[in-house]
Amino acid sequence: MSAFGFISTALAERRSTGLLRQRKIIESAQGPLIQVDGQHYINFSSNDYLAMRRSNVVAQAWVDGISELGGGSGASSLVTGYSYVHQALEEYLAAELGREKVLLFNSGFAANQAICQALFAASNKGLILADKLIHASFIDGAQACDAQLKRFRHNDLNHLQTLLAKADPKDDILVATEGVFSMDGDQAPLTDILSITEHTPAWLLVDDAHGFGVLGKKGLGVTELHNLSPQQLPVLMATFGKAIGTAGAFVAGSNNLIDYLVNFARHYIYSTAMPAAQAYATLACLQSQKRLQNKDILQQRIQQFKQLAQAAGLVLMPSDTAIQPVLIGNAEKALEASERLKKLGIWVSAIRYPTVPKNTDRLRITLSAGHEEQDIQALVDALQLTLQSTQKSTKA
């Protein structure tokens, strides 16, 4: 028997069940249009919610940043990779969010892993209570640390309260949820969650990857939207690779929390710092008026889509955000629907198990400020035709 023979077996199983993941090469991207295999599509599968990724604001800042600061940071932040631009971005975020300190990470995945593994090392075991649908990066981090992990049913306050009531009061407890859930597009009932956690010693963590940049009057995410104090929300994580249009992530909290992560978070200590030019472009986007203008446009597109979809008789999952999933419930049918949409010039990815729970396979539509009104109408028309065809093939 050859070594690692399970690889071929696992791939064959994924292929046979229609769950094999494959990459698509994007040959060009101009506004909401992408080119794949020589064909052009209106793209409804990007997390670039505010259309800032290719904006003049971000593009020019990248050019200026690279010209002044180079293409890479050259070292970890604790060696010589931490520049005045990194410091400026951290201080800007801390001031805007009303937090004492902010720490930059190369990705949200790394930030979530770092939080779990630093807070719950072997010498500090405790309990993590996480929403069932929280991102895989947090679940992986929680499973890899020394805390006990329990998951409460999605947005189920009674279940969370029951688990908290059963917890050992001597444990350090972290309650974790998302601002906007990446696959369903719905939001955590943070005010209600706080009514539970505020009467316990537990800390609340929010992964605001899909809310930061779009929620709140200034687009600062759940912290602004719900006016959350540092005491109510001791740990905030958010990313720049979605609404902000660059890359990387940050953790915001108290002086002690951030200093502790600097000293004990291995994902931070042993990683090359994000390029200073990237931090420069991120700060430029955050400070731009263009971002706020596009935030308003995005809200118009969301409302337009929901109204047109309702008029067309389309059944959507409950979401008021840029993430608008259409439940299919079968992996092969979801793929079929995605391919039918492509033939109509619409790019919407099929999201299947294990990314989402079994039998909740879906089309995950993401709207952007870069979409025009006619793009939204084209999407609804194509969905109507596609779902009718998919239903007919299912009955046949």
Rank of each mutant, 00 (worst) to 15 (best):
L119R: 03
D156M: 02
L127G: 00
S77Q: 15
T246L: 04
W203H: 15
Q289Y: 11
A165Y: 09
L204M: 10
Y268P: 03
Q35C: 14
Q287E: 11
Q388G: 05
A276S: 05
A10M: 13
G179M: 07
Q304I: 04
G253T: 08
S16K: 15
A249N: 05
R53Y: 11
I66R: 09
R14H: 15
F105R: 01
I269G: 03
L103I: 08
I193W: 04
W203T: 09
K125N: 08
M317E: 15
Q391R: 03
D381W: 14
A265Q: 00
G65K: 03
T282P: 03
S288G: 07
A382S: 08
Q117I: 13
A279T: 02
K392W: 09
H159Q: 06
L104C: 05
Q143F: 10
V348A: 03
D186A: 07
I328P: 06
A265F: 00
Q232T: 01
K217D: 10
R99H: 07
D64V: 11
M237F: 11
L93F: 06
R291S: 10
S254Y: 01
R153I: 11
Y270D: 15
L163W: 00
A265W: 00
A312V: 04
V85E: 10
A309R: 05
Q307A: 12
R23E: 15
K295V: 12
A249T: 05
Q60C: 10
I173K: 04
A142V: 09
L194T: 06
Q303I: 12
A110Y: 07
A95D: 12
Q324E: 02
D131Q: 06
H154Q: 07
E198L: 12
T177P: 02
E27T: 00
Y49V: 01
T282C: 09
S319I: 07
T321K: 04
D64G: 07
A277Y: 03
V315I: 12
E372F: 13
G185F: 11
L228F: 03
R364T: 04
F109M: 15
A10W: 05
E336P: 06
Q391L: 14
L383H: 02
S67C: 14
L205F: 08
G185A: 02
A309V: 07
F305R: 00
G72E: 13
Q117W: 07
A130L: 09
L164M: 02
A238V: 04
S389N: 09
Q310T: 14
K242D: 15
F240A: 00
A95R: 13
F138T: 12
H226V: 05
A114N: 04
V222C: 10
Q143N: 11
I193C: 02
N227E: 13
Q39T: 12
T390P: 05
A95C: 14
Y268A: 05
S77P: 15
I128Y: 00
F264G: 09
I139G: 06
I34S: 02
V85R: 02
I376S: 10
R99V: 01
